[in-house]
């Protein structure tokens, strides 16, 4: 029995002892691999995020153009073009909402990847610093120093990513943003253009609110109609007594709302889309107003300096 126990335990003890001897090297390699793998994951997430932000920016550009198209069609009194431009703007509003959600989703993934990489860098840095303290060979010390410097640089880049890129928001009129080469005359022109765009956006917001009010009245009427019919039909009070009942085909409900004209969607969905559109117009208005104020502030400061 004792021999059996000895034979059985010996390989186990040897394995455990061997692991203890080789663990520091293995752990170092594992940590280095972990940093490498998590860097790859982070880079992939960053690339995806940048693509999503670029797509959102392109949609914001199109929305800005669309607001201009609506304004132009309204001034020319071209009803067909105005209707088409409004449909396109609402479609863009839906697209922007989808892209906002997409950016939020990939941003969350990027955040997770960043946290994972920071943890791996922390662990690897702590380990390298321990090894540096224990190292006596100057060549080994220089090698470890270089590793530590490189990791600290990665850490700094990561922190910079988090504070700058994560704050990125769509820019509705990138051509009108502040350029270091601009002087007072460009500031004045850009301020005027931005103020006009803010007024246009405000006018369209008012009209969209009017449309929402109209649709809310229609929705209220529709609900009244549904209530009235349901209360008549529930107990069969309005059943025409002529034998076979004819089941009228219900109002068409569309399966795929993406290709359907807005005015054929249920009223609550139409209202939701209009409200989405209003929210984006408000964001546009607020952004261009703030930009115009920034130009005005610079012009005012310059006038004071003179």
């Amino acid at each position: 029995m004792g021999r059996w126990i000895g034979r059985s335990l010996l390989p186990l003890l040897l394995t455990l002892g061997g692991s203890a001897v080789f663990t520091p090297g293995l752990v170092a390699q594992e940590l280095a691999d972990s940093v490498s793998a998590r860097t790859t994951t982070y880079q992939e997430a960053l690339t995806t995020w940048r693509a999503a932000v670029t797509a959102r920016q392109a949609a914001a550009d199109r929305l800005g153009e669309s607001v201009e198209d609506i304004d132009r069609a309204r001034r020319l009194g071209d009803d067909d073009t105005l209707t088409e431009a409004l449909r396109r703007a609402q479609s863009l509003a839906r697209e922007n909402e989808r892209l906002d959600a997409r950016v939020a989703e990939v941003e969350a993934r990027l955040d997770v990847a960043r946290q994972g990489l920071i943890e791996a860098l922390d662990a690897r840095l702590a380990q390298l610093e321990r090894m540096l303290q224990e190292a006596t060979d100057p060549v080994e010390q220089r090698r470890l120093d270089a590793f530590v410097d490189d990791l600290q640089n990665q850490y700094a880049e990561l922190a910079q990513d988090a504070t700058s890129e994560m704050a990125a928001l769509p820019d509705f009129y990138p051509a009108l943003r502040l350029d270091p080469r601009d002087g007072p005359s460009e500031w004045e022109i850009k301020a005027q253009l931005l103020e006009r765009k803010a007024r246009t956006a405000e006018e369209q917001i008012e009209e969209a609110r009017g449309e929402v009010s109209r649709l809310e009245r229609r929705l209220q009427l529709q609900r009244l109609q549904q209530d009235s019919r349901a209360n008549r039909d529930r107990f069969g009070d309005a059943l025409p007594p002529v034998g076979n009942r004819l089941e009228q085909s219900a109002e068409a409900i569309v399966a795929d709302t993406t290709g359907v004209p807005l005015d054929q969607l249920p009223f609550d969905q139409q209202i939701a889309i209009w409200e989405l559109y209003i929210a984006q117009l408000e964001a546009l208005r607020d952004q261009v107003t703030a930009q115009a104020q920034e130009f005005r502030r610079r012009l005012g400061r310059r006038a004071v300096v003179r």
Partner: peptide, 28 residues
């Protein structure tokens, strides 16, 4: 009757009003 009467006339007149956004009253 109710299934197969000869001639039938049904009239409902509803007067309705919203008391709150989510509550309506109907006199029928």
């Amino acid at each position: 009757p109710g299934e197969e009467a000869d001639d039938a006339s049904i009239v409902f007149v509803d007067l309705s009003r919203a008391i709150a956004d989510n509550l309506g009253v109907t006199l029928r």
